[in-house]
């Protein structure tokens, strides 16, 4: 379980995170939603240790991150997988080399064992024939799938995704969302997804944390978000006519 207590982070005069407290259950998919500039990415980067928080603690299964020594931090990070907003694939490597990279760095597997694992993972993300392509030759959706393959190749305990379906068409976005959900369930990973895509909110995830202006404005389950009266949440989630209708239908169905 990941426990976050009173997380605060500033950059100069800009107070980005103003004290966020929440928990993320093991083996579940949680969504962090909020408008652009609400502090989602900074929050995720603090969880990953890419930014050091000014105040507060982040605890991974009972271990407070800031109290770990550098070797323990390194061990913990090797159990994390991350899917970046722009995929962040190494552009000097082929897709197979990108996926194999964590195995080369952290395992003592033979080349054939690594190759087998890469074949398996690329098949799992529906890219069985993409081994020798360069990232620049892959479409946005393919790059996201390669990033997911790279993130899960070393059997991570925690998976973090920063806007995994940004810049993708709606159909591919749903494919990516479902793939993340399936992988989370299949390998019992603790997954945290940053998104402002309401389709993702409707499709996947058990828990939703809503951030606004660096504060947790609301948290609850996927079902709760349909019935909440919290104006800040409803203004954001149901800003489009489509989602207003979806909510109306859900509430009508629920009442009958």
């Amino acid at each position: 379980m990941i426990e976050v207590k009173d997380l605060q982070k500033s950059f100069g005069d800009a107070h980005i995170l103003k004290g966020i407290t929440t928990t993320f259950e093991n083996g579940k998919t949680s969504l962090v939603i909020g408008q652009s500039g609400s502090g989602k990415t900074v929050f995720l980067k603090c969880l990953l240790g890419l930014f050091t928080q000014d105040e507060g603690t982040i605890t991974y299964d009972g271990n407070i991150y800031s109290q770990l020594n550098s070797d323990q931090k390194r061990d913990l990070r090797s159990k994390m997988g991350m899917v970046f907003q722009g995929s962040a694939l190494f552009d000097s490597m082929t897709i197979a080399e990108n996926v194999m990279f964590p195995l080369r760095m952290f395992t003592k597997q033979s080349k054939s064992e690594m190759q087998d694992r890469v074949d398996f993972v690329l098949k799992r993300v529906n890219l069985p024939d993409a081994h020798n392509k360069m990232p620049s030759e892959a479409s946005g959706g393919m790059q996201k799938r390669v990033a997911i393959a790279r993130a899960i190749v070393n059997n991570p305990k925690y998976l973090f995704c920063d806007e995994p379906n940004s810049g993708l068409d709606p159909k591919t976005a749903i494919v990516i969302d479902n793939l993340i959900q399936e992988i989370t369930d299949e390998y019992n990973i603790t997954t945290i997804i940053n998104t402002h895509d309401m389709n993702s909110v409707m499709e996947i995830g058990e828990k939703i944390v809503f951030l606004k202006d660096g504060l947790k404005a609301w948290e609850g389950s996927k079902d709760n978000i349909f019935i909440t009266d919290n104006k800040v949440v409803t203004d954001f989630v149901y800003s489009s006519e489509l989602f207003k209708k979806v909510r109306k239908m859900y509430l009508e169905e629920r009442n009958t």
Partner: peptide, 9 residues
């Protein structure tokens, strides 16, 4: 890509 390296430890 540098963030990706750092996340991996």
């Amino acid at each position: 890509q540098i963030d990706a390296l750092e996340v991996m430890g």
